[in-house]
Computed example of a mutant assay.
Amino acid sequence: MALFSADPPPDQDRGLYGKYRVEKVNGKPLGQCFVLEEHDPHAMAALRAYAESCRPDFPFLADDLMVMANRWHANRIAAG
């Protein structure tokens, strides 16, 4: 059994860590952020929760996020 592995530990064995490099299109500085990916089984629930939370201030964004979450759901069903 090797003591060291070239493979990183699985995400279940890690907490929050730098996994992505994200930048704003307009070049302005960006603070901490969290990326959601369609393949993540928890991302859809997080996306919907954020949509409902921001709805009073950003109703159009909330609608777009719900459309995205519904599309992710449909894609997951289509994939089996």
Rank of each mutant, 00 (worst) to 15 (best):
S5N: 10
G15K: 12
L61K: 13
W72N: 03
N70Y: 07
Y50N: 12
A49H: 11
A78L: 11
P41G: 08
M1F: 06
A78C: 02
P8K: 14
A6L: 06
A74C: 05
R21Q: 10
A51N: 00
R14S: 07
D13H: 11
Q12M: 13
E23P: 01
D11G: 07
Q12F: 11
M1N: 00
V25H: 09
K24D: 05
G15F: 09
D57P: 01
Y17V: 12
G18R: 14
P56L: 01
P41W: 01
L36T: 01
Q32I: 14
E38S: 07
D11A: 15
A62D: 01
R55P: 00
G80R: 15
A43L: 02
A6M: 00
P59L: 08
D40V: 07
R71K: 10
I77C: 03
L3P: 05
H39V: 10
F4I: 08
E38W: 02
G27L: 02
A62G: 05
L47W: 02
G15R: 14
R71W: 02
G18Y: 07
P29Q: 02
A51P: 01
L16V: 13
G31F: 06
G27I: 00
L3F: 10
N75P: 02
H39M: 08
R21P: 03
V22I: 13
D11Q: 12
G31Q: 05
G15E: 11
A45I: 07
E52W: 03
M1K: 08
K19V: 12
S5G: 10
R71P: 06
Y17T: 11
Q12Y: 14
Y20N: 12
K28A: 15
Q32T: 15
A78H: 01
R76G: 12
L36G: 00
R14F: 00
A79F: 04
A49R: 15
A46T: 04
F60V: 13
L65Q: 10
A69T: 04
P41Q: 01
L3C: 08
M66I: 00
G18L: 12
D7I: 07
D13W: 09
E37A: 04
A6H: 00
P56S: 07
A45C: 09
V22Q: 08
R71L: 14
F4C: 09
S53M: 09
A6Y: 05
F34G: 00
H73Y: 09
H39R: 11
S5D: 09
